[in-house]
């Protein structure tokens, strides 16, 4: 640039109060005609550009179907043939007044009540064993990968394998046989079908939370453990009074996600038991699927989907509000 002090390389000296002499400016090309675009607007445009990928997919494949499903829920809407008739809240009232619907809701609550705490205990337990503070276990990296593998395994494939393992002559009955337990009809008995799905879900799901909690544990300052150690706290006390409070935001996040996905369980139930025997392992999403694609009642299926949404909203909303009592945010 050849502006001020081009010859000497120094700025020209001026006395106090003297208005600086403006040097002659080079000719600036005239501005293009049109509206003046501010920096904020340019940045907003860029943001929309980045967002547009996701936003397009979200609008097309999530927002429109979700809104349409609400519309469908007020209609008697057979999949093929027949008239689409407006029935108002009839689908909702049929659902909430049917014994079958509440049986399915109880199935889901049973699954959630058993699976979520088990997932928390197993994932937190393994995170403690394979976390940064445990120096006694060797090959922790390898073990973390091993325990995380089920998360990245296709659910359909793993469900089919578990179906074989639970079957007559399967490995689970064979192992139990060693301990004198007779052949159990895991998938064909109404008492064992849901526990089978819970066991399989546990295997499939704890790895994600385990990695999440390990990540959280690496952020806990070591001096807290040193301080409590000086105060005479043992490992168990440190776990409950340092690890758990410091990890509580991670525990909250992990449990919240597990809770939501538990209400939405489908594939494992569909493949392992098909919702049976009877309706003993039918989940809400499986019921939605059956109503829509086996009985072709799209309106009724949509109504159940919205009832499920309300159920999840209530449970997660309550869980969210309760965080103030047990989640510790450092800042």
């Amino acid at each position: 640039m050849a502006l001020v002090g081009a010859h000497t390389g120094k700025a020209p000296r001026r006395s106090a109060g003297e208005r600086p002499q403006s040097p002659p400016l080079p000719e600036v090309p005239p501005r293009r005609k049109g509206p003046r675009v501010t920096l904020a607007r340019r940045e907003a445009r860029a943001a929309y550009g980045f967002l547009s990928f996701n936003l397009t997919g979200f609008i097309l494949f999530t927002l429109i179907p979700v809104v349409f499903s609400l519309y469908l829920s007020f209609f008697n809407w057979p999949l093929t043939g027949g008239q689409h008739t407006l029935v108002g809240f009839h689908n909702y009232s049929v659902a909430v007044s049917s014994f079958g619907f509440w049986q399915v809701v109880i199935n889901v609550l049973y699954f959630v009540a058993a699976y979520v705490p088990l997932n928390l205990v197993v994932s937190l337990g393994l995170a403690s064993l394979l976390g940064p503070r445990n120096k006694t276990i060797k090959g922790k990296g390898f073990l973390r990968v091993v325990f995380f593998l089920p998360v990245v395994t296709p659910v359909v494939a793993s469900s089919l394998v578990w179906g074989l393992m639970f079957g007559q002559g399967g490995i689970i009955n064979a192992v139990l046989g060693v301990f004198g337990v007779g052949q159990l009809n895991w998938l064909g008995s109404s008492g064992l079908a849901m526990p089978s799905i819970i066991i399989m879900s546990l295997w499939l799901g704890f790895g994600y939370n385990m990695i999440l909690y390990i990540a959280g544990m690496t952020n806990i300052p070591e001096d807290l453990y040193e301080a409590t150690s000086l105060d005479g706290a043992g490992r168990v006390r440190q776990f409950f009074h340092v690890t758990v409070p410091m990890l509580s935001p991670f525990l909250f996040f992990g449990t919240l996600l597990t809770l939501i996905t538990s209400f939405q369980i489908f594939t494992r139930a569909y493949i392992l038991t098909g919702g049976g025997p009877g309706n003993s392992s039918t989940t809400l999403v499986l019921e939605i699927y059956d109503q829509a694609f086996k009985y072709f009642r799209l309106g009724y299926a949509s109504a159940i989907a919205w009832l499920l949404f309300i159920l999840i909203l209530i449970v997660t909303g309550t869980f969210y509000r309760l965080q103030r009592h047990w989640v510790y945010y450092e800042h």
Binding site: E43, R45, A46, Y48, G49, F50, S52, T56, L60
Partner: peptide
């Protein structure tokens, strides 16, 4: 950013 904007718009429009 402009490039991303254009690419994003093009992809969205294409979709």
């Amino acid at each position: 950013a402009k490039l991303m904007l254009r690419v994003g718009a093009a992809v969205s429009a294409s979709a």
